[in-house]
Design a protein around this nucleic acid. Sequence first.
DNA 1: CCTCCTTTAATGGTCGGACCATTATAATTT
DNA 2: AAATTATAATGGTCCGACCATTAAAGGAGG
Lengths: 279, 279
Amino acid sequence: MLVEPLPDAMQQVSVHFRFIGSPDMKTPSAIPNFAPIRTQRAFEVICEQIRAQLAAGTLKTGDKLPAERELAAEFQVSRSALREALRSLEVAGIIRNVKGVKGGSFIQSAEPDRIVQAMQDYVHLGNISLDELTEARLATQDIIVRLACERASDADLAELEAIAERTRQESDVEARYECAAAYYRVLARATKNRMFGIFVDSLSAILHEFVQGPDYETLQETLIESRFKLVRHLRARDADAAAAEMRKHLERVHRHVRKTLKAQNMPAKAAKARGKAPA
Amino acid sequence: MLVEPLPDAMQQVSVHFRFIGSPDMKTPSAIPNFAPIRTQRAFEVICEQIRAQLAAGTLKTGDKLPAERELAAEFQVSRSALREALRSLEVAGIIRNVKGVKGGSFIQSAEPDRIVQAMQDYVHLGNISLDELTEARLATQDIIVRLACERASDADLAELEAIAERTRQESDVEARYECAAAYYRVLARATKNRMFGIFVDSLSAILHEFVQGPDYETLQETLIESRFKLVRHLRARDADAAAAEMRKHLERVHRHVRKTLKAQNMPAKAAKARGKAPA
DNA sequence: CCTCCTTTAATGGTCGGACCATTATAATTT
DNA sequence: AAATTATAATGGTCCGACCATTAAAGGAGG
């Protein structure tokens, strides 16, 4: 059996899963039963069970969960409650829902997108300053460059150069940003450690929100040049030089961003609105 | 008005928000209308709008969204669809739902919990190896120690010592883990950069899953001693010594974890099942 | 006037049943 | 054999209802 139904205490209609007392008891104070109160919602229990099976390895990438109606019956909850659980897992990037016959909920492979999203939310809510982001980025990239310097394959280096070259040909601002992100991503991949890729992607996405005008133009050629230089240092396996180049590069970028923000009188902590209204 | 209703194309019953053609058209191929097809679910649109208001600053921490029934009316969707959106935002840590009169959905302040959860999911799904985690941890802690060495206040240092002292008095394994996590967290806080706290918390939570038996005992005193030493180095503002101590500390821990895993014949990539069955 | 209890209404959580749009497969037709 | 048409399974949405929780209003008693 894939799932276990919710415990008996949860079986009654609309019971809110408290694990103490009885729902109908009118004078619960009669018995000095001071167990810790814990209220838990149905969808949370469901998520926990599924996550547990994930951690245990009972469920793994590619597996298909039973259909909603069926799964709801197994858990002995309504379809709505189950759907809220599935929705949670979906936005967490754990499952993917596909419609139609042979549709269902499929366990996803790991994608860093959700972590990036979570970090983005965190920054929006927590007023993380540009300075903090910048510092974290400098520190992270320093490590990455040094590791990449040891481990980058020839293919990695060639790809980096190709991206830098492509950047030069792009004229669209957004396309150039994409190139930059790709450059950083490949560099992170060259460390052969996926954790660094996560950090980089997150910081890239967040810092992108700060980039404002097309005033970037003036800096563009310098930046591209710097990327080529970095590859040369990597190829020479000169970690210190590579790290220094990256540092110079990032400082240039951030000085520029900061100046732009100031020119627009924007505090360094507020990101601009990026919500696109539905057409 | 807080929200805008969904566009006209979405108003029909159960329409799945395609922005091309008409649902009732029987021969849509008659007109060569080749606009890109985009299907979007109601809850996604709602989430986007709310996230947009967050990024724009229209919504901020502490604000209260209208009641579900009311909000559903504003968006002109069913309560179920709205609830799935709210559920998504809740598991993303953006809102908090509270019941009862004066209840509702409140915009939360930033908590790193969700990022930690996201990273945990990522590791579970992606088979990130212990080696990768360890390396990332070593690198991250190196930076943190060096920054903390510059910036830690006397209060920070005192707190670190207090935690190390408390660890010695604890006998429960889980409590000691809590102490360790707290130690790392305070250390990260001493950098005065919240981004590092996120990294640390995530790695702590994930690595905790690898810790198995109570075989930790033998190492315990050495580890605590090491924490005291680290504080002394920090107090002396000796970054290199502090970083070296931290490195030694972590390597000890990870050697031990690795050995334990091997003894249990567990691959270094699979985390043990931690799902607690409901009582 | 103040305190304690009861009532009330607003709100999130859950339920169950319904219909629609999508999609892969089976059945049918050409 | 190929193309077309039903069929059934599945996720997405809607509706209306009831329950549990909770803060505030109202009332009883001092």
